[in-house]
Design a protein around this nucleic acid. Structure first.
Length: 269
DNA sequence: CCATGTACCTGAAGGC
DNA sequence: TGCCTTCAGGTACATG
């Protein structure tokens, strides 16, 4: 599911719902889901702050941290009272002393909740967040032009710019008019500028629309996002381009289904 | 350094 | 109706 806009939506909602609640315990129903890298559980600690970096959520506790990655199908659902009876795919349950719950549902079991002394233990080489105000166009250009790879792979690599995934990369490249196979260091300043502003626009719009629900994504209250109604290329292979009526292409690039308009998006090599 | 493949998992969808 | 293959919002790791 979740790329930056979905994780940001969940982070904002949890900021409202679970801040300052005290953890009673955490139970894992799928052992790999909860990876405790300390010698104690977080029982008794309060959640002081919730942050997001890229696609990671970070809960700051009294002494330690919970670092959460939803991967493909992870959902973090808050409820004042247990109401998950009979629901499939619940892998972990965080219970608070006041009786409320946060449960982690994850059909494909790729998601992780890490309990660590320091987030850096599990967040290795995560680059600057794609919506960080400190990421200026100049910085973006500098990072991009050092690389010599196709721009899709570059944007997928969380070590450089963190938060973009398959959907929003395809949408950003379409908006920028840049072909996904373009080579990073071959992009001119004009295209770098268009890509930079497109990424910001696409991500911010998706945040405003509470993220995109293709199948699994739900926010912290179990609701679907609204942004999936505004895609121009993702999931539209074989349909006509909203801008020029050319048939949208779909190819495999960097191991991912990649959607683009061969007429609107120019290749730079 | 870069590209590609595999592994981790489950379920939905399409072809025959 | 089955069975088989492919695909899916991600990432780590291995191999040329």
């Amino acid at each position: 599911m979740p790329e930056l806009p979905e994780v940001e939506t969940v982070a904002r909602e949890l900021q409202q719902s679970i801040l300052n609640r005290q953890i009673r315990n955490i139970e894992a129903y799928w052992a790999k889901t909860y990876d405790n890298r300390t010698d104690t559980d977080p029982d008794g600690q309060r959640i002081h702050k919730i942050r997001r970096l890229g696609k990671y959520l970070i809960f700051e506790l009294d002494k330690t941290y919970l670092v959460i990655h939803l991967r493909m199908t992870g959902q973090l659902i808050f409820s004042e009272h247990p109401n998950h009876d009979g629901e499939n795919g619940i892998r972990a349950l965080l219970t608070f002393y006041d009786g409320s719950f946060l449960y982690f549902k994850d059909m494909r079991k790729f998601g992780r909740i890490y309990h660590v002394h320091n987030p850096g233990e599990v967040m290795i080489n995560v680059g600057i967040d794609a919506l960080d105000a400190a990421l200026t166009e100049e910085m973006f250009s500098g990072i991009l032009k050092k690389k010599k790879t196709n721009v899709k792979s570059f944007l997928l690599d969380q070590n450089y710019i963190a938060g973009l995934g398959n959907i929003y990369i395809d949408e950003s490249l379409f908006r920028a008019g840049v072909h996904p196979e373009s080579v990073t260091h071959a992009l001119k300043d004009k295209e770098v500028n268009r890509l930079y502003t497109s990424i910001r626009f696409i991500l911010q719009s998706a945040v405003d629309n509470m993220g995109s629900t293709i199948s699994d994504y739900r926010d912290a209250y179990g609701n679907e996002g609204n942004n999936q109604h505004y895609f121009n290329v993702y999931g539209r292979g074989g349909l006509t381009c909203n801008s020029c009526k050319t048939e949208i292409s779909k190819m495999r690039l960097a191991g991912r289904g990649t959607h683009f308009c061969s007429n609107c998006q120019i290749i730079f090599k």
